[in-house]
Design a binder for these strands. Structure first.
Lengths: 152, 152
DNA sequence: CGTAATTAGATTGCGCGCAATTGATTTGCG
DNA sequence: CGCAAATCAATTGCGCGCAATCTAATTACG
């Protein structure tokens, strides 16, 4: 069994594919784990991420939320409309810059943060690893993301 | 500045959020990096994953592809229909078990593997890390996925 | 043997995710 | 000042991703 350049390229192809599958699968697994936990709250996973962003800082414009989550108005506009419909947020035009729409939490939306604490706890258990391990994985993913985005 | 139970709970919510964001963001970054590379081939990212599965083993039934990628027929049926429309695969009922539909590569679909080698090379560069690092990340993701799925 | 339970795939409905376009507002520059 | 360029959100169109439902085929069991 001799090792050739072609072998190592095949190795790279397989690893690339495996990494694709791994990211893809892990993201879906995350999604599936959150879904039943978020359903009682009346939130989808992306909606939950938006709520977290608002719990951290209320009254952000759509653009700021989009930058934080990496989403554009094509995704956020209808999503925010549904959050408004559900009574979690209110949308109003910024008086100083009427291009912007600021998203603010309603009382109901702010209260939801307390219920969400249970979700966090359940996910923590499902992760089944220490905070250090989770942090290490997170750092690896963030670094990967940075490299991918800066390369393009 | 006193440290209270509420503080530490907020800390956990944020860390949880960061891991969410990290997976979410990395998956999107992967998607965005692949998209312009796959467009010339006429494939979307999920279609590319299906093609990889078929290049590894031709003639699989829909169910087997779904198990490999974690997708159900609701996603695969229309996706495969588009791959068939594009001339990359053919679908035919298994003669021994007419419930199953086996997906086989056309000549055009098999040839596409050669063009896809360039995609792999570009991604390898975009990853910007050693094979060992990529493998470690892959293992961490696979382990995470396993824990999440087994917990639910 | 025959009916019930299981399995495979397709279809429908809804919510992202993103490119492209549109419309309104603000900014910048001559 | 005035017009062009830039910015922000909304909308449209298409392709997933998944739950729920449906049909057809196979298997299991009495």
């Amino acid at each position: 069994m001799q090792k050739t350049a072609r072998d190592s390229q095949n190795f790279e192809i397989k690893l690339d594919a495996q990494l694709c599958f791994a990211i893809y699968g892990a993201a879906h697994a995350f999604n599936r784990t959150y879904k039943p936990l978020l359903e009682p709250l009346g939130l989808t996973y992306p909606q939950y991420l938006v709520m977290i962003a608002l719990w951290e800082e209320d009254g952000q414009p759509v653009k700021a939320i989009g930058d934080r989550l990496g989403l554009d108005s094509g995704t956020l506009s209808p999503l925010l409309k549904r959050l408004e419909q559900a009574g979690f947020v209110a949308r109003k035009r910024d008086r100083d810059d009427e291009r912007q729409v600021r998203i603010s939490l309603t009382g109901k939306g702010a209260e939801l943060k307390n219920e969400a604490a249970g979700v966090t706890e359940a996910i923590g258990k499902a992760l089944g690893c220490s905070l250090d391990e989770a942090a290490a994985l997170r750092d690896g993913l963030v670094a990967l993301k940075e490299r991918l985005l800066s390369a393009s």
